[in-house]
Amino acid sequence: MTQVTVRLPNGRLDITALNVSFAELPIASASPSVVRGFGGDLDELRETLRECFADGASWCQVGNTVHTVSDGYAEIRLVPQADTPNWHVDYFHAGWGSRDGKRIPPECRLQYARYVDRRSEAREACLQGKDLRAAAAKDGPEGVDRLVRHHCAQLAEWHEALDELIRSVQTASDLPEWAETAVKAELLDWHRTREYLTSAVLEYHHGDTGPRPETVWGNLCFEFSTTSLELVPDP
């Protein structure tokens, strides 16, 4: 089994030895998460890349990147490198073939892809009380404060990413139907993540959160720079 041995700048792993290309450019590097996703087996990665990006395979172009088309929650993506004429492989954390992905008009995929990338960087995990207790055991109150502030900053970045998505696709007072549906789905996840954060802080300081939902449903209004969206339970 071929293993990665060379790490390039920005955390990229050298896979030029796989001798795989697309559009006459070599696929020269991969993100560590992609390599981990294949259990470190580069032979399997090579065959997957050849199959996914072969002529006639199911892939699409989004801006200057090339994606596999999946009905799941992640796709393999080829990204051109600015410094050298080759491709870098990473994961795109959405699926153009999924129910949600199919709603995105082809002409708006680039804006949505930019949002997905920002969300993926900001969406780390749902914080829980045990995480704060572990931080306290390791670094004391300062560690707890840093962790809570870190998650607050991630939520703010995620919200700003949603705001940017809205601004980039809104051409009238009302959002396009697909965008409103997509943003509301993301807002439910955003609010659930925020609810976990506040419940974790409550549990850490007071020992009990009381009854709480897994996901908060209800008439919640979110204000953005150009519009507001209200989450209402489906009838």
Rank of each mutant, 00 (worst) to 15 (best):
L188K: 11
L231Y: 08
R114W: 07
L42M: 04
E230K: 11
E75A: 05
R192N: 09
E230Y: 03
E230L: 12
G95Y: 10
D41C: 02
P80E: 06
T2V: 09
A113V: 08
C221M: 13
A74T: 14
E157S: 11
N19G: 02
R167N: 07
G56A: 01
H151D: 01
R103A: 11
Y91K: 12
T209Y: 07
L132I: 10
G95N: 09
D71A: 11
D145G: 12
E164I: 13
R36Y: 07
R118V: 14
V116M: 02
P213N: 08
G72Y: 09
A200I: 07
D90N: 09
L110T: 08
R123A: 04
D208M: 03
S228A: 07
I27L: 03
R36I: 13
E160N: 14
I166D: 03
G63T: 04
H151N: 04
R212D: 10
D145A: 14
E195A: 15
P85R: 07
C126K: 07
P233T: 04
D145H: 14
P85M: 00
S173I: 13
R36F: 08
C221W: 08
W178S: 03
I15H: 04
D234N: 08
E75H: 03
V62H: 00
D71L: 02
Q3G: 01
L220E: 06
H67Y: 04
V6R: 14
E195W: 10
P176W: 03
P106I: 10
C60N: 05
I27Q: 02
D71G: 13
R114P: 04
D71E: 08
D145C: 10
C126A: 10
G210S: 05
P141F: 02
T209C: 14
E75I: 10
W217P: 03
N19H: 09
Y196G: 00
F92P: 01
L197Y: 09
A54P: 05
R192Y: 07
T16Y: 06
K102E: 12
L231I: 07
C108S: 15
R50Q: 13
T193Q: 05
H205I: 14
R167I: 14
F92Q: 02
P105R: 00
L188R: 15
S58W: 13
T227R: 04
V66A: 00
T65P: 01
E157T: 12
T5W: 04
F222P: 00
V148P: 10
L13D: 07
W96Y: 11
F22L: 05
